[in-house]
Design a protein around this nucleic acid. Sequence first.
DNA 1: ATAAATCATAGTAAATTAGTAGGAATTAAA
DNA 2: TTTAATTCCTACTAATTTACTATGATTTAT
Lengths: 134, 134
Amino acid sequence: MKMSSKARYGLYVAVELAKRYSDTDVVSVALLAQCTGITEKYLEQIIAMMKRADIVLSNRGASGGYKLARAPQDISVGEILRVLEDNLQIVDCIHKDCANGCNCVSRNLWTKLNENINSYLDTISLQQLVEDKL
Amino acid sequence: MKMSSKARYGLYVAVELAKRYSDTDVVSVALLAQCTGITEKYLEQIIAMMKRADIVLSNRGASGGYKLARAPQDISVGEILRVLEDNLQIVDCIHKDCANGCNCVSRNLWTKLNENINSYLDTISLQQLVEDKL
DNA sequence: ATAAATCATAGTAAATTAGTAGGAATTAAA
DNA sequence: TTTAATTCCTACTAATTTACTATGATTTAT
């Protein structure tokens, strides 16, 4: 029940990008790696997932880099974490079959718990996080 | 961010014990293993944790077994899962130090998320779960 | 042209989780 | 009082997942 480092790191990266959102230019992986302490290669993979999910956008080639695809107030923490954390699903049986079948009482619990987590994380924007206003 | 099978299984076991709570006698691991589909040896370990946490109590020796230490309406799902799932902590840095230090904005998020999860799970009793009244 | 960057993907090491195994201690019942 | 059924204790191993490394192709500003 731990958040993976991929998800934690992804959020750190998003926070750094949010701080720089007013800048017109993009931020390179090298710089992001430096200020977050994540290795470049690992960070590349993480930000690639965020790009595929349209959370960030990129410029390729020399002096290229990444920036947020939308304003920090329009990106929720839930959106980011779902991309990096297997849709934030607490157990597999919510969307797959399990031995207990569909009438398993626990299944309803997991479903509600998931809704709870997701709806909470969806109320928090990157902007709020950067301003430390939770 | 998956719930471990230990926690899932522990909850199944607790549900089975809750169904049988009105019986005066205890239930053996062998029987619990049979009706949950968990192997006896693994189940033994899981229920041992629940015993140490005073969620279940046991009779040793022949015709021994386990039963809930309290009525199903007095045991919350949160209580059970915390015992089996490293206190339900989403990230380590909530109670340990991390590279980012104490002024890390994400840390507050994890703390709030944890509170959210725990307070939800604490509102649900085993009784509710058995009656499928979430 | 060149250098600085993203992009794609395969591989490996570390850590965690899940499950096995063996046997000691206890106790109800024959 | 022996026996069989059971909990209790702890060490080990296999499987899976996570975290990270490595290589190199592609793109593009200068």
